[in-house]
Nucleic acid binder design. Structure first.
Length: 197
DNA sequence: ACATTAACCTTTA
DNA sequence: TAAAGGTTAATGT
């Protein structure tokens, strides 16, 4: 995404988050630009009953909470490290200095934000017109779109049943029931509990 | 720690 | 009102 040297020359530092560490919480005032160097960070919310909804899972090269930096609004979500993660952190004001002096950086961040909007549009539509198998198919098709090998069963879904459920608003049991039916109809394969799509 | 199963309950087409 | 999906709880890997 963004050239790391530019970030460091503008005062960025490198921070390590352990699994379960919180990068920021819902309601916090956005104060930093974050770029993942290594690791996995999830963006989530909890409903009234405490059920988790995963808004997205971010990996190496992705920015965390980027869109909120352009708004004078608090974070609408939490960002939590799923595994130990290395993150470049730069104060918001310095980030905007970069944008001023190096406007080329916009052409790095706009496609990234557009990609996220694309994911949101896809998921919103299948969530709204519910139907569990459509929701899971939309999610898996999205994953497959970003996977090199497009042939059948080539993608091992890198998510647990619980994560699939949290990403689609379904219960784990429904995810299990639906993927079993999908295996029966040949849409996917299950090998020692791993899903191949 | 994650996945499965089953019995039961609630909501929806 | 039957079917679909969620809840609970016990059990398996």
């Amino acid at each position: 995404m963004i050239n790391e040297d530019i970030l460091f020359s503008f005062g960025a530092d490198l921070r390590t988050f352990d699994a379960e560490d919180i990068i920021f919480s819902e309601g916090d005032v956005p104060a930093f630009f974050f770029l993942i160097v290594e690791g996995k960070i999830k963006i989530n919310n909890y409903n009234e009953a405490g059920k988790e909804f995963i808004q997205g899972i971010l990996l190496k090269g992705h920015s965390v909470g980027l869109s909120s930096l352009f708004l004078s609004k608090n974070y609408p979500v939490n960002a939590v490290a799923e595994i130990e993660s290395e993150v470049i952190r730069l104060p918001k004001a310095h980030f905007f200095e970069i944008l001023k002096k190096h406007p080329e950086v916009y052409s790095d961040i706009i496609p990234f934000m557009a990609e996220h909007m694309h994911y949101k549009f896809l998921m919103m539509q299948s969530m709204a017109f519910h139907n569990p198998s459509d929701k899971l198919l939309t999610l898996m098709n999205y994953l497959k779109l970003h996977h090199e090998d497009k042939s059948q069963y080539s993608l091992q879904i890198p998510l647990t049943r619980q994560q699939l459920a949290s990403l689609t608003g379904l219960s784990v049991e429904t995810v299990i029931r639906v993927i079993k039916n999908m295996e029966k109809t040949g849409v996917l394969k299950i090998q020692n509990r791993k899903i191949f799509y």
